[in-house]
Design a protein around this nucleic acid. Structure first.
Lengths: 210, 210
DNA sequence: CTCTCAAATGACCACTCTGGTCAAGTATTA
DNA sequence: TAATACTTGACCAGAGTGGTCATTTGAGAG
């Protein structure tokens, strides 16, 4: 990336980033079209190739950029919060903020891990290896698991909660895309879901609604 | 579709179908390449265009084909089974059989509903409208919901169970892709998960492990 | 063994789209 | 006004597109 890109107005920069994320997420590296990107971003071909020397550089920039954004989740969260569900909604909120700013960021990453193009695969694999080594359980740091019932397999229970969160997130996303923004209600609805889960998976003395 | 295609050996037919499903699922209608399909299927260009007059016809054939396969789920399931979890594993098993035969069938359909290509969009929209009108709750027919606890919102509880099933399915899929086939253990593992869910969501008298 | 004929092949076509360049044009600054 | 910085889109060679069709193949019949 050229320093010119960094000096762009934030609005324009994000328009370009989002256009590129969308194209790569939808089409994969090889079939993604730079023409598609400039059209969506509303800039000229020449501009794009002033900011980035070539397609590969653009892709690797995005890979790095999104990685950093996702890493920020861990610096923004409050690691003193020991309650599993409060931690989850915290991280959920941070992710939602990311989604509002870069709607295709997570899709881009998801597509990246199954990217086949040899031109960028080694870089992606390095990134994945790095992610795994820094630990997949970062998000569970300092959680008080003693609140959970002991008669249920803890690992499976946390999986169920995670899948619920994932499914809920996707449902909200479909809603937002087809109707209007509903930001306010989302939290309430998640609260209701997590109350059910708490009542089922926490020991009785921890089931109080907050 | 030409009758020639129907008269092909099953093995070859499925090879072509799977190759095409994969290409369309990964790339969408417009960016899907017929060259990619014939390469993956191991047939000549001319053959493909003997079986199907053009790309659009091939795509619409697949759309119809997969729709019929998915519809078969409903004819194969035992609708006298009233237990929610037994019904779920039944349908899960049927879907797994489909997945083994046509690994990209569900991805193809998922991509189809967000397909933008004008050449095929009207057909897809008709199909979606049809799906919605035949009812989304077909799968819940004849289920005995009285087994569920009455102090929890039933709609939310069934959502949680569905999201769990979805998440579990995806997890298994990742496993199969990266390691070896593990068909046998899958059912056991699902059994353990659904036992947890039963114990949490069913009235006490129905929690017995089958 | 030859003849027949349907099925399979891949070289070939016109055309579109690709990633990338660069001379000319427009803003911005001093 | 002049100098500088940024933006533009026409343009390029080459790759890839959906689709065709004359030729080759091979199984079965006589």
């Amino acid at each position: 990336m050229n320093s010119q890109f960094d000096n762009l107005k934030t609005e324009k920069k994000e328009r370009i980033i989002n256009a590129a994320l969308k194209e790569f997420a939808q089409s994969g590296y090889e079939k993604a079209s730079t023409n598609g990107i400039i059209k969506e971003a509303g800039i000229a071909k020449g501009s794009l190739f002033n900011y980035f020397n070539n397609k590969k550089e653009l892709y690797l920039f995005l890979l790095d950029y999104v990685t950093k954004i996702i890493d920020e989740i861990y610096s923004k969260a409050d690691w003193n919060e020991t309650d599993f569900f409060k931690r989850m909604s915290q991280i959920g909120c941070i992710k939602f903020e990311i989604y509002k700013k870069y709607p295709q960021a997570f899709d881009f990453m998801k597509r990246a891990v199954s990217e086949g193009a040899t031109e960028v695969r080694t870089e992606i694999e390095a990134l994945i290896k790095n992610l795994i080594s820094t630990g997949l359980e970062r998000g569970y740091q300092n959680i008080d698991f003693s609140k959970f019932r002991t008669d249920l397999d803890l690992e499976k229970v946390t999986k169920i909660i995670n899948w619920t969160a994932l499914g809920f997130a996707e449902e909200q996303r479909d809603k937002v895309n087809s109707f209007q923004d509903v930001t306010a209600d989302v939290l309430d609805e998640w609260e209701e879901l997590s109350n059910i889960l708490k009542r089922c998976f926490y020991k009785q003395e921890y089931c109080g609604d907050d």
